[in-house]
Simulated scan of single mutants.
Amino acid sequence: MFTGIVTDVGEVVSMEPRGELRRLRIACSYDSNSIALGASIACSGVCLTVVAVAREDARTIFEVDAAAETLAVTTVGTWAHGTRVNLERALKIGDELGGHIVTGHVDGVARILSREDFDDMSQFWVESPRELSRFIAKKGSVALDGVSLTVNDVDGDRFSVLLIPHTLAVTTLGARRAGDAINIEIDLMARYAARLREAR
């Protein structure tokens, strides 16, 4: 489990095909001694399992494997050397829940339709996959590239979010532009509410 509060921005050092898997090496500023093998780290919203960790020069490098399903339904397959990714460590009991409950199980890929900058903030209009739009509600929560955001408005398959200066500064979203593809995870509570309604 995660909260959608990014704690570091990492950089993909390499991506190596291994059959249907891809082994990614990601550089970060986390203490290498604090990352255990088998730990979960959300990488731009995608929960991945650490399979190796090392210290190289002044950076920590951790390795994760992306399976075929992950490559098919997220943006991970497009990552390459130099790609910057939002990172979040798994939630611990007693940690502050600053965003909303995020599983790291990305539902699909959305696309930024427009970006308007004003007063050091940015408003994004985003198009979600049609099958996910019914789960997105005004004033509800959504995770974009692992960042917990509040939905401002909804228009069919389109919705808007407002990014404050801090979010733009400490995540990869500050560099995003119209046309970019981003990972989207809908609110877990919205999913269960819809399922309960269908069951009735």
Rank of each mutant, 00 (worst) to 15 (best):
V161Q: 02
A67R: 06
R130C: 10
K92E: 15
I112F: 02
T75V: 08
L71M: 11
A90Y: 10
Q123I: 15
A68R: 12
D155W: 02
G108Q: 08
K139V: 01
G94H: 01
V142C: 12
T103R: 13
F118E: 12
A66N: 10
T103N: 13
E96N: 10
G77M: 09
R134I: 12
T150A: 01
T70P: 02
D157C: 08
S133D: 03
T83I: 14
P129Y: 01
T150Y: 00
E116T: 15
K92Y: 12
S128L: 09
S128C: 15
T78W: 00
V76N: 03
S160P: 09
V64P: 06
D107L: 14
A80H: 08
H166K: 09
I101W: 10
M121I: 01
K139A: 00
S148C: 08
T74R: 07
L91V: 09
A68C: 03
G99N: 13
T78L: 09
S160R: 00
F118M: 11
R89W: 04
R130W: 05
S128H: 02
K139E: 12
G82R: 13
V161K: 02
A68T: 10
A110E: 08
D117W: 01
G98F: 01
K138R: 11
L97R: 10
V102N: 06
L144G: 07
D157R: 03
T78H: 03
S160G: 05
V142P: 02
S160T: 05
I93W: 12
V73Q: 01
E116P: 00
G98Y: 06
V154M: 09
G82P: 05
R84K: 14
W125P: 09
A72W: 02
D155Y: 00
E116W: 00
R89F: 13
D120I: 05
R158G: 06
I164R: 10
D65I: 08
V154Y: 04
H166A: 06
I101K: 00
V85K: 01
V106R: 00
D153Y: 02
E127T: 13
G104A: 10
W125E: 15
E131R: 01
W125L: 14
V76G: 04
L87I: 10
F124L: 15
I136K: 01
S160C: 04
L91H: 09
F159P: 07
T78M: 11
G99E: 05
V142K: 05
D65V: 12
V109L: 11
